[in-house]
Write a protein that binds this DNA or RNA. Structure first.
Length: 482
RNA sequence: GCGGAAGUAGCUCAUUUGGUAGAGCGAUAGCCUUCCAAGCUAUAGGUGGCCGGUUCGAGCCCGGUCUUCCGCUCCA
């Protein structure tokens, strides 16, 4: 385990050293739990996003993609339950340093009381919670001598409100402005556009709406590199189904999503399902697809059966009918008619997927050369199809007309995939540099190329090389990246 | 948020009771080189995380702060 943590440190260092990930605002000492993607990282992230987008929209006739704004009407977050559930008064015990949600603390105490006294206290608490009376809540805790379970003392801090949503104002004059939130999840942008997409796209149930985009959560503690950030990117697909068929689709997406992760090179044994025991207020079934990160098994993607909760809530708050008319016939030969569709959600953290790919790819290799000396390299074995740079074109020498041939090849290839050109330094050093950034293919132009139009292609993962026709380079690399 | 540890060049580290910072690797430019970090030459990079205090003098001592890591805590 200690080894794995060290390895995680090395992955983080490597990400910085080779332009994958930088800490945000590093010039100013950084901003906690916020990271920037560098020149390599941005490309890898884009490739992952593109793969997902393609698998969802292009590969499914009944899934379309949208791009909703980060800002949304404030009522959206009341309807979704985020205003109520994403904001909890918390209190810390100064002796044990244990933090409690105020309502949980009081409810636990109430469980020890007589029924009548308990109900009175709950009523009092609800009143204070509704009024956002934090001082009153503290008084309630202190006058009833509610103790911490660990320290058995009543030495409490003030009650503080932790709102997990970031807020800002629309409009330039603060007093006149409405408080709006930066979305804590992208899903709501899909739900509020359900009717727009269904009608304009003439979508028939079952169908899905996919979206990628930033979401924001003001985590109390955000750590573990890019695993938990305050600003992060989600890739979500909400699949709308006929009520009663949700479990069927839930199981379908559960398998489909796991297979997708395997298709981008994540080994099956590094993935597992974790069923939620305690379900969120909107769900009738939920599970995580977990990956074995360097710091343990953690959620990579969530599959949730969200029932009709979201659409119903938005219908209620907007006072608009959000329904679907289903002309298909049921067992009795009648149309299913009007109903509020049920939703099965798949939601991947793109940053977590990035971390998954990088932690699998990072490898340190050591071996003994033929002359008996030790050699080593650090290599990112990123699957070719998502690697940021696909091909490095390397003239063996920067003279004798070799750069000219190489440049010609570069011009032929670069409309088709991302290439890197380098004529500096010894060939071995250039190979090592390409290993470090994860370029799967290197092609070297040498003097023999001038005689018979062949080049050496060198494979990153095996370090083996072979002679291929110059004219075949583009096709071979393109095929290798499928 | 609490407790512990750390922060010196892009990276890994030196500077061992306080006397205005060095190396290796890397980078850049050139020379030389026919396939896995070769060699030679030159160059660039640090107001020692930041702010303040003690001192004739602080990378080193003290306080604060920011960031990171570890353990708790939190994660609808």
């Amino acid at each position: 385990m200690a080894n794995e943590i060290n390895n995680f440190q090395e992955i983080i260092s490597h990400c910085k050293e080779y332009g994958y990930i930088f800490q945000s605002s590093e010039l100013y000492d950084g901003l906690s739990a916020v990271y920037d993607y560098g020149q390599m990282g941005a490309q890898l992230k884009k490739n992952l996003r593109d793969e997902w987008w393609k698998s969802m929209t292009q590969m499914h006739d009944n899934i379309v993609g949208i791009d909703a704004a980060i800002f949304m009407h404030p009522t959206v977050w009341k309807a979704s339950g985020h205003v109520d559930n994403f904001s909890d008064p918390m209190i810390d015990n100064k002796d044990s340093n244990k933090r409690y949600r105020v309502d949980h603390l009081i409810e636990a105490h109430v469980a020890t009381l007589e029924k009548e006294a308990g109900e009175a206290m709950i009523a009092e608490m609800d009143k204070l919670l509704a009024a956002d009376d934090l001082t009153g809540l503290k008084t309630l805790i202190e006058t009833n001598k509610i103790k911490c379970n660990i320290s058995k003392t009543c030495n409490w801090t003030d009650v503080r409100q932790f709102n997990l949503m970031f807020s800002t104002q629309i409009g330039s004059v603060a007093e006149e402005a409405d408080t709006i939130y930066l979305r804590p999840e992208t899903a709501q942008g899909i739900f509020v556009n359900f009717l727009n997409v269904q009608k304009t796209g003439r979508m028939k149930i079952p169908f899905g709406i996919a979206q990628t985009g930033k979401a924001f959560r003001n985590e109390i503690v955000a750590r573990q590199f890019i695993f938990r950030m305050r600003e992060f990117e989600q890739m979500e697909m909400q699949f709308f189904v006929r009520p009663g068929t949700q479990m069927e689709w839930y199981n379908y997406w559960k398998d489909a999503r796991k297979k997708w992760h395997e298709s981008i090179g994540i080994p099956a044994e590094k993935l597992r399902f974790h069923d939620h025991v305690k379900l969120a207020h909107y769900a009738d079934a939920a599970l995580d697809i977990e990956f074995e990160f360097p710091f343990g098994w953690k959620e990579l993607e969530g599959i949730h059966s969200r029932t009709d909760f979201d659409l119903s809530q938005h219908a209620k708050y907007s006072k608009k009918k959000i329904q679907y008319f289903d002309n298909d016939l049921n067992a009795e030969g009648k149309a299913y008619g009007n109903y509020t569709p049920f939703v099965v959600e798949t939601s991947v953290g793109l940053d977590r997927l990035f971390l998954t790919v990088i932690s699998l790819a990072y490898q340190e290799e050591k071996w003994t050369k033929e002359d008996g000396t030790e050699d080593s390299r650090v290599v990112l074995k990123i699957p070719a199809k998502i690697a940021p740079t696909k091909l490095a074109i390397l003239p063996l020498l920067k003279k004798d007309g070799l750069p000219e041939i190489a440049t010609e090849l570069l011009n032929e290839c670069k409309p088709h995939f991302h290439c890197f050109y380098e004529e500096k330094d010894a060939i071995g050093k250039r190979y090592r540099r390409m290993d470090a950034i994860g370029t799967p293919f290197c092609v070297t132009i040498d003097h023999q190329t001038k005689e018979d139009n062949t080049v050496t292609i060198r494979y990153r993962d095996t370090m083996t090389q072979e002679r291929i026709p110059l004219s075949e380079v583009k096709n071979i690399v393109a095929k290798g990246c499928l």
